[in-house]
Write a protein that binds this DNA or RNA. Structure first.
Length: 326
DNA sequence: TTCCAGGTAGTCG
DNA sequence: CGACTACCTGGA
């Protein structure tokens, strides 16, 4: 077990950990909360590592306090780099706030979102499946589904603070039963009277997305290589992830933004459409594709952050409620 | 209790 | 191409 810190002086701008963790970004469900700390199992250099992080420390110089625990010996530097990547600690939020302040429509978001950062995937495949599961679905429901999938098919690791599960590999997930019928068809031997369906994807609450998830898990083993995707330019990567079943333009942008850190992505969901219309177009009925183009053209490399900040601002200011149904 | 939100895929013109 | 609708679940 090791304990160390990341200094505030090492990162550009503020960092609000609970806000980042609980803002509903589709990279992964929020980590397990323990008082003001958050815990999750990460695979670092191929080894399991329970990472506990907090940033409520009294000392103003500490941006993040990290306690890491692993049966293997993992260099502190590797753990630190993983945390920096997941919480986008290299992003310069001071520059973001300069950019937001230049646009009177965007400047109010700063006070509502100070320290909110992109919560990037700890595992890109998990982000692909999370994003597919989030389509046409509430945050509460898709996060619950992903937690179910991890519990049923992920590797389990026991630590003093509890059991943690990794997200299953594409190999494992592509071979799970899609629904009750398939689970019982595969059942070996006599079926007990008290048989409970639970080891199938639909039982995780993903609904009709189960077949998309299984087929996507198959495709990332063959046609679509996630490691190559990470190296593609944004436009090419967008076209590529669109080939996955259950992935349309909005989900594709979530995958590229939260899974691969492509910050020029502007995921255009129905809420962002309403917010953009309200702020910039008063009455028009924009097509989602137009909303996406508007975001990319006007916000450039800050598009992903603007989408995140607008949505969170609308949620916490009451704007979202007033736009409901429009 | 019924109703409805929320992106994608499939179908139709 | 654009317009329209079915899809599954759970919270209101």
């Amino acid at each position: 077990m090791i304990e160390f810190y990341i200094s505030s002086k090492k990162i550009k701008g503020p960092f609000n950990l609970p806000l980042t963790m609980e803002s509903g970004q589709t990279s992964q469900p929020p980590w397990k909360k323990d008082n003001s700390q958050f815990q999750e199992i990460l695979i670092i250099d191929g080894a399991p590592c329970l990472v506990n992080i907090g940033n409520e420390d009294q000392d103003q110089d500490i941006a993040v306090k990290i306690i890491a625990e692993s049966p293997n010996s993992i260099p502190q530097k590797a753990i630190k780099n993983k945390v920096i990547e997941i919480f986008s600690l290299n992003d310069n939020l001071d520059k973001l706030y300069d950019f937001l302040s230049e646009d009177p429509k965007l400047s109010p978001t700063v006070d509502h979102c100070r320290g909110l950062r992109i919560f990037k995937a700890k595992n890109p495949f998990e982000c692909v499946i999370s994003s597919i599961s989030s389509a046409n679905c509430s945050i509460l429901r898709w996060t619950r589904s992903i937690q179910n999938i991890k519990q049923k098919w992920g590797d389990s690791y026991h630590f003093s603070s509890g059991n943690f599960h990794t997200f299953p590999t594409p190999e494992i997930l592509s071979n799970v039963p899609e629904h009750d019928l398939e689970e019982i068809q595969r059942y070996e031997g006599e079926i007990p009277g008290n048989f409970m369906f639970k080891n199938n994807l639909q039982a995780c609450g993903v609904g009709y997305r189960a077949k998309y998830i299984i087929n996507t898990a198959k495709m990332v083993q063959t046609d679509i290589n996630l490691k190559k995707l990470a190296k593609m330019k944004y436009e090419k990567a967008f076209e590529t992830v669109l080939e996955l079943p259950g992935v349309g333009p909005k989900v594709a942008d979530c995958i590229l933004l939260y899974g691969f850190g492509m910050k020029q992505a502007f995921p255009a969901d129905v809420w962002i459409k309403r917010i953009i219309e309200f702020l910039y177009f008063s009455k028009n009925d924009l097509k989602p594709q137009k909303v996406r183009e508007f975001g990319m053209e006007n916000y450039g490399d800050w598009a992903g952050y603007v989408q995140l900040y607008l949505f969170h601002y609308a949620r916490t200011s009451g704007l979202l409620e007033s736009l409901r149904g429009k």
